[in-house]
Design a binder for these strands. Structure first.
Lengths: 160, 160
DNA sequence: GGATAATTCCTGCCGAAGCAGTCAATGCCG
DNA sequence: CGGCATTGACTGCTTCGGCAGGAATTATCC
């Protein structure tokens, strides 16, 4: 029972959610990357550190599914951060397949220094939005994400 | 005069617009790419064809800025589509630097066949959204895009 | 009008993400 | 307990976007 949000005859890709979301993502990177790279880090390195700080994830696997990053690519980013002494890989006895990522003191200092820069930049660029507007945007984006996620999940289940 | 949408102390990247938008983009691709690739086209090839169909852009340059795709990368995609006889490059006398992209009959048939598949998939995945909800999401995304765009513009102007 | 700058498209190169396959560790089932 | 599937991290290969530079055309300015 799918709704008729779009119709093939009148469909313009400019008004598609996919187009708008892709464009917003790209623009967002253009805004935020310079902030981070000015301090010697790639944006993904920042993202990994921030994710660990927030306690959102501790294993590479979690980061992959949360942030939708490739497993192989993530291994290399973790390598870089480990070489710079910002985090450590710890093997727990509980499940020796998993690697637990722990921020070092240096890593914690680094990310705590970077986050205000990002927050400032975000506030600056979002100043056109009222608080309720931004709240609603966040709510709808979260709903979109969960919707897409469950849709993908059911598709994968159907294939199996 | 930037608002205090986010605060460094309480900032969680999970609730950042950037994170949500990136995730939505990635999930959207995972949903739509299989639809297109099942018919022998990459998603970008589809996007280029759709952009030309909509008359949104005729020159590679326009597509680059509209869709935020790299100029060099776009040249190669256009090559692929031209080799498959779906579009043609035309040099106009008006401005001989520009290349005008024209869909061939085959190209038009192709894109007209693909769009309903994408539209159906979109409607299916967005069925959880009411019409006003989707309208509001689109409005906010468009506002976000224009905001980011102008912000980037002013930053670039300041550098020059 | 002529030198200089700017625009448009293209090419080569590089780096990073995507993908598939490997290996070790764990879970599962009879 | 033993055999098979599954999970998690990693590695090599491929692909593709990002970037810098070049060539042709047009715009700008003195």
């Amino acid at each position: 029972m799918s709704k008729q949000h779009y119709k093939a005859a009148t469909y313009k890709s400019q008004l598609s959610v996919g187009y708008l979301v892709k464009r917003a993502h790209s623009l967002m990177l253009d805004v935020l990357e310079p902030v981070i790279e000015g301090h010697g880090f790639s944006f993904i390195q920042y993202v990994i550190l921030a994710t660990l700080r927030d306690g959102i994830a501790v294993n590479p696997k979690d980061i992959c599914s949360q942030y939708r990053h490739d497993s192989g690519a993530l291994t290399r980013v973790i390598d870089q951060l480990a070489e710079r002494g910002l985090l450590e890989r710890v093997r727990r006895d509980r499940d020796r397949r998993k690697v637990e990522l722990q921020l070092t003191a240096a890593g914690r200092d680094t990310i705590e220094g970077l986050i205000p820069l990002v927050v400032d930049k975000l506030n600056e660029t979002l100043s056109e939005f009222s608080k309720p507007e931004l709240q609603e945007l966040l709510r709808l984006l979260i709903k979109l994400n969960t919707t897409l996620q469950t849709h993908l999940g059911s598709v994968l289940a159907a294939e199996a």
